[in-house]
């Protein structure tokens, strides 16, 4: 299960988010604000999906879309992509705090920080990744729901297929961040798909024969 501690340019490490493995511990949330590019501001999202029903939690980093909706709806032209495809936080001098990006992002990623009157978002810890280190969240994630490494390392240690395509209604979105599915045959992940039913609908067997 050994991964590299530090990656070179030729390793082309990838970020993988497997939300299903999240245990909701918030290590990522705590570690995010320790990142040098936005110290004191945690930019990852982690929420309970519906605590009354389950302990499932929803972690969300920026998926770094190939053609980011956030940048396209920004009136100030403040959201830029790096050559490596990282969609950066709004340029501080330009962002006028309108929140268009916050509302339009299909993944619900950018945050409007009222205190600073500007948008901030996950930049995949540019200070770390530019030096070959994993982003803070993927460094600490105890369940590896957030993971950073090479595709080969992923294949060697994990099941499931990597996928980078999403459907939001008619909109197809391709992302730099990968997620995991059992089977690629199902096509892009459909955010509007109906939920499946599992034993979790009746965890205590209240409807089951004793």
């Amino acid at each position: 299960m050994t991964k590299q501690a530090r990656y070179g340019i030729d390793d082309t490490p990838i970020f993988v988010i497997d939300q299903s493995r999240c245990i909701g511990c918030e290590a990522c949330v705590q570690a995010c604000e320790e990142c040098g590019t936005h110290r004191g501001q945690s930019l990852i999202h982690l929420e309970r999906v519906d605590r009354a029903q389950s302990t499932q939690t929803a972690p969300m980093v920026c998926m770094h879309c190939e053609d980011p909706t956030c940048a396209n709806v920004c009136p100030a032209d403040a959201i830029k992509q790096t050559e490596g495809g990282i969609v950066q936080s709004a340029l501080k001098p330009r962002c006028i705090g309108c929140s268009n990006c916050v509302l339009a992002c299909p993944f619900g990623v950018p945050k409007y920080v009222a205190e600073f009157d500007q948008m901030m978002k996950c930049d995949m810890c540019t200070d770390r990744t530019s030096e070959g280190y994993a982003p803070m969240c993927a460094s600490v994630c105890p369940s590896e729901a957030l993971w950073y490494g090479t595709a080969e390392e992923f294949k060697a240690s994990r099941t499931g297929s990597l996928i980078d395509g999403w459907l939001f209604g008619r909109q197809h979105v391709r992302t730099k961040v990968f997620t995991v599915v059992d089977d690629l045959a199902g096509g892009p992940l459909d955010a509007l798909a109906a939920p499946t039913r599992t034993w979790l609908d009746d965890p205590f067997g209240l409807e089951e024969a004793p």
Partner: peptide
């Protein structure tokens, strides 16, 4: 003043829970 993941320690390879981070 802060922490840094210790990737080379084999047990947790840099992983930490929120208590560890803080």
């Amino acid at each position: 003043v802060g922490f840094e993941p210790w990737y080379d320690f084999p047990f947790n390879e840099g992983k930490l829970c929120p208590k560890g981070v803080k």
